[in-house]
Write a protein that binds this DNA or RNA. Structure first.
Lengths: 207, 207
DNA sequence: GTTATCTTGCACACTGATGTGCACATTACG
DNA sequence: CGTAATGTGCACATCAGTGTGCAAGATAAC
């Protein structure tokens, strides 16, 4: 009665489905199961062997993605809220492939709740950042901290989902936009990014 | 063979359907024909008497809304690009009821093209504004004019569609956000709005 | 090489939505 | 009032998508 180990191809296929779903749903959040399965090189029937439901597939996608995000949020420890925000935006941007689905699914009425729950840690990070930024005078204070945090989230989602991730300078644009929203003048943001070039292009550290 | 004049109730019902569609689709861009018809107090069958198609209904919705928008864009004639942008944002915001559908439909893959075409004049206005703002040094110059214009559009759409239009200060938030995106520091935006309170609250002119 | 595990195609039942035809009732218009 | 124009309910055909059952074939694990 000793259960056999799961087959290698099976495990790969499951991962393949998640990849395909990530890519496909980023463009069209309501792509059919068939399209997803085909784009993973599998049959629709097989997909149902790996996931009970469309729901199940999407929930897993969200959960896995959210973990990634929350991990990134936790990894940003800069004292200066301006730098922290910039770095957070840049790191999330590097995860573009993963971010886009999240951005698309976050608007889907059916998954709003799950997404919100899964991203709670990230949201807390942003909220704390907004508060700190206001306290030390580097962020705008014409909006309540909560409002500012919300605004940052929404604009981040927009920039991520409505920008061609491949285009050059996209990460730069995203970071600058968020700093503007936080209340920095564009010159200030510009100066900040000149002083810390590694934020946008991590490879430049040693250059 | 002389055709009779169209019945009054018929005309009213047609308008009622458009209203209902505007309200319903703003929340859920893929609401069914049945839901729209019912919410207009009519039967699904009747709706098909007024519009050939779901397509036809939506296209008319977009066309009518776009005319409104373009009209507003044309009405903003301030010399100062900062004030022009603020006023444009505020006026569009007052049209919240109409704006929300447009914002929702603009993302719908099936109608992107039509929406884009219909809103071309508004888009041109924004583009010109971005250019002028950069030339006279009041807007940011770290982004190309075209990029800035695009960014303004996208953020505007986000703010409009993701804000509770009824909440107090929502218009204020929208205007401030767009000025930030344009490159103004929040203090500058704050000062601008203090100097021109009529931008956000047109009733205050005589107060 | 056996065998359990996977994949596949096909048929099927089900659902929600679209668009149409038609007969009947209702109502505004002249 | 008479009539054309509208609204309504119902049946129907169609379509796309979901999820399941099953038998046959392929293949990785042991």
């Amino acid at each position: 009665m000793t259960t056999r180990a799961p087959r290698r191809d099976s495990v790969e296929n499951r991962a393949g489905i998640l990849d395909a779903a990530r890519i496909t749903l980023a463009t069209d959040p309501r792509a059919s199961i068939d399209v997803i399965a085909r784009s993973a090189g599998l049959s629709r029937r097989t997909l149902y062997g790996h996931f009970d439901d469309r729901e199940a597939l999407i929930r897993e996608l969200i959960s896995v993605g959210a973990q990634r995000f929350n991990g990134i949020a936790a990894s940003v420890t800069d004292e200066d809220p301006r730098i922290a925000l910039a770095r957070l935006a840049a790191r999330l941007w590097q995860e573009a492939a993963h971010v886009q689905v999240a951005a698309a699914l976050a608007l889907d009425e059916a998954h709003v709740q799950h997404t919100a729950d899964a991203l709670a840690p990230l949201r807390r990070t942003v909220a704390a950042l907004a508060r700190r930024g206001q306290e030390d005078g580097s962020f705008r204070t014409d909006l309540a901290a909560a409002t500012l945090a919300r605004l940052i989230e929404e604009v981040a989602r927009t920039v991520v989902s409505r920008t061609d991730a491949a285009s050059t300078g996209a990460a730069d644009l995203a970071v600058r936009t968020l700093l503007s929203i936080a209340g920095l003048s564009w010159r200030e943001a510009d100066e900040l990014l000149s002083t810390h070039p590694e934020i946008i292009d991590p490879q430049e550290v040693s250059a």
